[in-house]
Simulated assay, not measured.
Amino acid sequence: MKTNIYVIYGGKSVEHDVSLQSAFSIINSLDKAKYNVYPVYITREGVWCSTKIVKETITELKELKHCNFNSISGSLGDFLSKHFKKGEKSIAFPALHGSNGEDGTIQGLFEMLNLPYVGNEVLSSAVGIDKVMMKDLLSLGNIPQAKYTSLLLHQWQENEEKALEEIENIIGYPSFVKPARLGSSVGINRCKNRNELISAIKEAFLYDHKLIIEKEIIGREMQIAVIGNNCPKASVVGEYIQERKFMDYNAKYVDGRLVPVIPAPLSDNISEAMRQTAIKAFKLLNCKGLVRVDYFVTAQDAYYINEVNTMPGFTKYSMFPALWEKTDGTSYSELIQILIGLGFARHEQKNSILHMRWEA
């Protein structure tokens, strides 16, 4: 009997469109002779739209956006009632980025359904998407990172002048203002003075009520892909050659001008140190399945973790699959199968835990 794979994508997130691109590649890469592939589209309003089994190659993104429901609860109820039948082997593949998908919420639903799923669990997903919490935990492991501070919306509304003075005293300029719980470089701005800082804060608060403000580090932006459960492995280091000050949304997903360099030109000692640090971060955040660790590397070969991404993109521009292909020859399709296997293995291990008091 074939394994059912539910590729879940879209969602109530500013990264909705990026998710569609990831799902497009994942669905087309899955072996239809081995798997029953079910696309599950979540609209921007949160409505679940389950379509029929995909047996052929999808040629256009619009094929992934069919929906016949208006109600969130009704659509979710219909999806659950039609699938996950007894005796069938099933797994969810959340190709969701950002809010309501990469933040532990949908992972909590899978846990309640006792459904195997690809990627990180509730805790690591929630911590990984919150850049402030993530950096607080990484600091406990003495992992190098940029100086940072945070700002909550109510603090800004109560006293803008005080908030600005604290940021300027702690971080200074140039600085970067980011929504704390978003990815794909949405809502991020570089600030050289107070006027730019005010404007950046106001824009970032459109996307989140919690911000992180970081001191600028001048360096190359590099990435490492980590896969595994109990014994994670790190890829070689890769970097993008870019024209802009930082990789914003358009640079990543629209312009297509980023040129990947894999492996990145680094000394063996620095490369290995970064790989070991990536694994250390993976373990500190209790990650499972996969993580992409993003770095800054200065001209003096000092390296700093910028952030971790617990569900990195799988678009045609994505670094994660390219890193593994250059590391050990793992193809895109093989990588997907490895991640599916890791999801099943974690599920089996978790199901070995007792949920009632043991008596001799």
Rank of each mutant, 00 (worst) to 15 (best):
F205R: 06
H209F: 10
K210R: 14
K210Y: 06
I213G: 09
E214F: 02
E214Q: 10
E216A: 14
I218L: 13
G219W: 01
G219V: 00
G219F: 06
E221N: 06
M222W: 07
I224G: 07
A225S: 14
V226P: 07
V226T: 04
I227N: 12
G228E: 05
N229L: 12
N229I: 07
N230A: 13
K233P: 01
S235H: 11
V237D: 09
V237P: 05
E239V: 06
I241Q: 07
I241G: 06
K245F: 14
F246Y: 12
F246N: 04
F246G: 09
M247H: 10
Y249K: 02
N250A: 14
A251T: 00
K252I: 03
K252Q: 08
Y253E: 01
D255S: 04
R257I: 03
P260R: 00
S267L: 08
S267G: 15
S267K: 15
D268V: 14
D268F: 07
D268Q: 15
D268C: 12
N269V: 15
N269K: 15
A273K: 13
T277L: 08
T277I: 01
A278C: 05
I279E: 04
K280V: 02
K280P: 01
A281V: 00
L285A: 06
N286L: 04
N286K: 15
C287N: 04
V291P: 02
R292M: 07
R292F: 06
D294R: 05
D294C: 09
Y295C: 07
F296D: 04
V297K: 02
D301H: 14
D301E: 15
D301Q: 15
D301R: 13
A302L: 02
A302M: 04
Y304S: 04
N309T: 10
M311I: 14
G313P: 12
F314N: 07
Y317P: 00
M319Q: 02
F320R: 01
A322V: 10
A322H: 08
A322S: 14
E325T: 11
E325N: 15
T327N: 11
T327Q: 07
G329D: 08
T330P: 11
Y332P: 00
Y332C: 10
Q337M: 08
